[in-house]
Simulated assay, not measured.
Amino acid sequence: MSWAIVADSSCNLRGYTPQAADTKYFFAPLKINVGGEEFIDNEHLDVAELNRRVAEEEAASSSACPSVGEWAELFRTADNVIAITISANLSGSYEAAVMARELVLEEGPRNIFIVNSRAAGGKLELLVYLLDRYLTANPDATFNQATAYITDVEQSSTVMFSLCSYENLTKSGRMPKMAGMLANKLSIRILGIASDEGTIKVLGPSRSQNKIFSKIISMMESQGYCGGPVFIDHAFNETSAQALASKISEKWPSAEIVCLPCGGLCSYYAETDGLIIGYGWGIASPQA
């Protein structure tokens, strides 16, 4: 039986090759609309040019999820399909994937399971990686066993956001314009974490990167992280991503840290110098 692990492009893995036998990885691109021009969030996107255009555009930009047809095409690539989407509270990607599943299942027998990550960025990368690792270690796993595993991993993992630019948030009305202007002017960095509802809960502001990193370490420890995979996505800020990786490694030498550049969708939300950190505990720990 063949397997496909499918994500939308809020997952920043590009060119990922699964280690599990007879398993492929695909991602369905979201689109970002800027001043009437559509940017497709795939491996060919010039993310720097996208960010430049967004910064120049006075009006709010917008994003669009993969179409039902795009999801359906990917769902037809294997006997067993597990799809992982950006939070259903942030995008219509999950709903489109659900509709595509019903369409494809009408065509014939196939197994398709869809995970609402309740997050974006690093958490999706963590889910893809751990699912691949599970299928590699358990080549005879049934579809139900694999879906039970990834459901448990989703419940025992999260994502944090370290942001220091708020132009898009203010343009879209997600943040008061005056507050965004003040935060930008004072170089205030905000740390947030994905809530159970898939929205961002602000943990606190700081002008010090070291204080933000300390808060990240403290939060990870309080939730039970004890080593294992961590994905740090950065929006043109590899230096800070590597600095945070070093702090995590100092605390947990067994940490497996991967730093990745943000694709279009995540760079649109994280903005310049933003970080998105995905990690897990319990079943998503080294004992997984």
Rank of each mutant, 00 (worst) to 15 (best):
A96E: 11
V202L: 04
T136S: 09
K123S: 04
L126V: 05
R189A: 12
I190E: 06
L182N: 00
T151K: 14
G121R: 11
L103Y: 13
L163D: 01
R133W: 05
G180N: 04
S157Q: 08
M178A: 14
S187T: 03
R174H: 12
I212P: 01
V159I: 09
M99R: 14
P109V: 11
E102L: 13
Q145H: 02
L105H: 14
S222M: 12
S218P: 08
G224A: 03
K215P: 00
T136Y: 08
Q145M: 01
I114G: 04
I114D: 02
D152A: 15
K123Y: 03
P205G: 10
P139K: 09
G224N: 06
I150N: 08
I193C: 01
Y134N: 03
L191Y: 03
L105Q: 15
V115H: 10
Q155S: 08
L105N: 15
D140P: 00
E154C: 14
L105M: 15
M175G: 04
Q209M: 13
E167S: 07
L127G: 04
G204Q: 07
I188N: 06
I200A: 05
Y149D: 01
N144E: 14
F143A: 04
L130F: 00
V104L: 10
S162P: 00
L163R: 07
T136G: 00
G224M: 05
G121Q: 11
M99F: 08
N184L: 13
R174Y: 10
I212N: 11
E154I: 09
A119P: 11
R110H: 11
T170N: 01
T158I: 02
L127K: 03
S218W: 12
S165G: 12
G198P: 05
F213P: 13
M175T: 06
L163A: 13
N168H: 07
K171E: 10
A146H: 03
T147P: 02
K185D: 00
E154F: 04
S218D: 15
E95C: 09
A97D: 09
R174L: 09
I200R: 02
M220P: 02
V98R: 15
V153C: 07
A137P: 01
